[in-house]
Every structure is written in structure tokens, then in C-alpha cells.
Computed example of a mutant assay.
Amino acid sequence: MTSCSRNLPVTYREYKFAADFPILLMEVKSTTPQIDFIHFHNCIEIAFCQSGTMTWNLENQVSSLSPGNICFLPPFFTHGSFFPSQEGEVSCSYLFFNPEQLLAPFYPNGLPSEFTWYQYTDFSKLLSGERFCEEVELIRMIIGELTDRVGHYRTAVRGMVETLLVLLYRKHQGCSVFGGGGSSLPQLFPAISYLDSEYAAELDTAHLAYLCGLSSRQFMQRFQESFQQTPLQYLRTVRIQKACRMLTSSETGILDIALQTGFHSLSSFNRYFHKIVGSSPQAFRNDRRAIVKKDPRYAPYRAT
């Protein structure tokens, strides 16, 4: 990856989905070079390259997408793409959707927190078709259903998107937040889910143990065995991950981010951020989110 210009204009592209089926398929084919403007939007974007080579600007880093590979972008992630001059046709299919809205018929009480792994900044954006062969096949099937629109295709698409998120979540479990894989992990999931949503609250291990149906002693022992860290250490990592997302997706001040993620002072936030990430919050923001989202242009997109 190489850096590109830090002064590119940025546009917020808001996708307006149909209320009863909030997913959009776009197909792009071209034999001439094309350039997309730098933008971010309010939904997940999956780009599946079928032929030719695409060049992507991902948060001011340049990468290539080749046939059979996927570009998976979370909401509010700045990006743009262009087709360099080349022989033959460039063909790419794009899926845009919000999983919380699309899967609402399956989860009327809210999407399970494991399906929101895509929010974390450390998940790879470019996915190899060789490693993610099951996911690629699912995306092909989703595109086919949205293209053919045969009977009950909406239910089929929802089911395949749900399966896709589960498969990607499993591959994401190796990161620091979801790390660990002991046999106690399923029983600990109620506590993990709670910490992921209530990360700014004071740590109450007795309540976490209650959620898991364990005594405080059992909970602490099984948590330590599964994650090789205490609940407090885990919570600090979750808070820092949440802070990383805010640092790279907003212009919120660092002190406000510290307070919103459960830290009581800027010095405490800076200390643990450097310990976990290896740099200061400001340096992380400058390095990872070099494209500034302050006062972006607004370009809503409505499916026709």
C-alpha cells in the first residue's frame, strides 16, 4: 500500500433504501478508465471484482482488487475506486445494505452483537477469494437472487446475508477483541455481548457472572482461561477499539471520545491507548484517517 494525496475532497453519500427490502445491487462494466470520487456512506459496501483490475483508495491508502476478490467496507469508511487503463473489460458488482435493517424481520429485538464485528478498524477490507471461497460463493448467489428475482428471493437474500455475516464473524474471531477460543467461550458470550454494547459503563463482574449463570469465582476463572486476561483488561481493549472507530470515522474531539468510551480522564485514555495500539490517539487518527471528514459534501443516493 502507498499513501496518496491528503487533500482530496470528500463526499458523504447517503443511500436511501426501500423500507421493505433495504439492499441495493449495482453492476458496473467499463472498457475505458473511470475515476470515482472519495466518499463515505451510511451502509456496508461489498465490491466483488469479476474481471479486470480495480484500484482502490482505502482511507488514503492505495490497493488493487483483482478478479474473484472482495472489497468489504464498513459504514463511514472513506474510499474511492478507479479503473486504470487496461486491455479488456472491467466488471464489478456492488452490494449496499444495512444489516440491522435488512435482517430486522429475523431479529425484531435487534441484531446480535456478533454481527457487528465489521465496525472494528482491524478487520481486513480486501478479502482474498482463495481464503474466503465460501463467502465469495454466497455473494455470487446473492447477486444472482437480486438479478433474477424469482419467488421468495427476498427471504433467500436475507438468509444468505445472515450466513455471510456469520462466516465472516468466525474468521474475525482471531482479533484481539474476540480472541480466545476455549470451551467456556459460548457460556461467556452474554457477558461479551453486554460489554460490547455497554462498554462505557462501570465494570460490574458480579452482573456479568449473573448474565452467564455463573458464580463470580467461576466467571473470573473461565474468563481468564478463555481470554488470557481479566474482564477489566478485556473491557479496556473493547473501549480502545470503539475509540479507534470513532477516531477514524468522525471529527469528535479526543477528550470527548475518551469520555464517551468510558475513560474518566484524557491522561488515562492516552495511557491505555498507547499501551494497546502503540501510538497516541492523535497519531492514530492522523495515520489511519488522513482524509478529513469535516464539512463533507452531501450526496444522497436513492435507488430507482
Rank of each mutant, 00 (worst) to 15 (best):
1 M>Y: 09
6 R>P: 00
6 R>H: 11
7 N>C: 04
9 P>E: 06
11 T>W: 00
13 R>E: 15
13 R>D: 13
13 R>C: 11
15 Y>P: 07
19 A>I: 11
19 A>F: 10
20 D>K: 08
20 D>A: 13
24 L>E: 13
24 L>Y: 11
25 L>S: 11
27 E>R: 14
29 K>Q: 15
29 K>E: 14
30 S>Y: 02
32 T>S: 12
33 P>Q: 14
37 F>P: 09
38 I>L: 11
44 I>H: 02
49 C>K: 01
51 S>F: 08
52 G>Y: 06
55 T>E: 15
56 W>K: 03
57 N>M: 03
62 V>S: 06
64 S>H: 07
67 P>N: 08
68 G>T: 08
69 N>T: 02
69 N>H: 15
71 C>P: 02
71 C>D: 09
73 L>S: 13
75 P>F: 05
76 F>I: 11
85 S>T: 07
88 G>T: 06
91 S>Y: 12
96 F>H: 11
100 E>Y: 04
103 L>C: 10
104 A>F: 08
105 P>W: 05
105 P>M: 02
105 P>F: 00
106 F>P: 03
107 Y>G: 08
109 N>R: 10
109 N>D: 15
116 T>R: 01
117 W>R: 01
119 Q>H: 12
119 Q>D: 13
119 Q>M: 15
119 Q>V: 14
121 T>N: 13
122 D>N: 14
129 G>W: 06
134 E>L: 12
135 E>N: 10
135 E>V: 10
137 E>N: 13
141 M>Y: 03
141 M>W: 03
142 I>D: 14
144 G>I: 00
144 G>M: 03
146 L>M: 15
146 L>E: 10
149 R>H: 10
150 V>H: 08
152 H>L: 09
154 R>S: 14
155 T>N: 14
157 V>M: 08
159 G>N: 13
162 E>H: 15
165 L>W: 07
168 L>A: 08
170 R>M: 11
173 Q>N: 09
176 S>L: 06
177 V>W: 01
180 G>Q: 04
180 G>N: 03
183 S>V: 01
184 S>D: 15
188 L>K: 00
189 F>R: 09
190 P>T: 03
194 Y>M: 00
194 Y>Q: 09
197 S>G: 01
198 E>K: 12
201 A>V: 04
204 D>N: 15
207 H>D: 07
208 L>E: 03
211 L>P: 04
213 G>P: 06
213 G>V: 01
217 R>P: 03
218 Q>R: 00
219 F>K: 05
219 F>A: 07
221 Q>I: 05
222 R>G: 05
224 Q>W: 05
225 E>M: 04
226 S>F: 02
229 Q>D: 09
231 P>R: 03
232 L>N: 07
232 L>Y: 06
237 T>F: 04
238 V>H: 04
241 Q>P: 03
242 K>L: 07
243 A>F: 05
244 C>H: 08
245 R>G: 12
246 M>A: 15
247 L>H: 08
249 S>C: 09
251 E>Q: 11
253 G>D: 15
255 L>H: 12
258 A>I: 09
258 A>Y: 08
259 L>F: 10
260 Q>F: 02
260 Q>H: 14
262 G>F: 04
263 F>G: 11
263 F>H: 07
264 H>V: 07
269 F>A: 08
271 R>P: 00
271 R>E: 13
273 F>H: 01
280 S>R: 05
281 P>W: 00
281 P>Q: 06
289 R>V: 00
292 V>D: 12
292 V>G: 00
292 V>Q: 11
296 P>N: 11
297 R>M: 10
304 T>C: 14
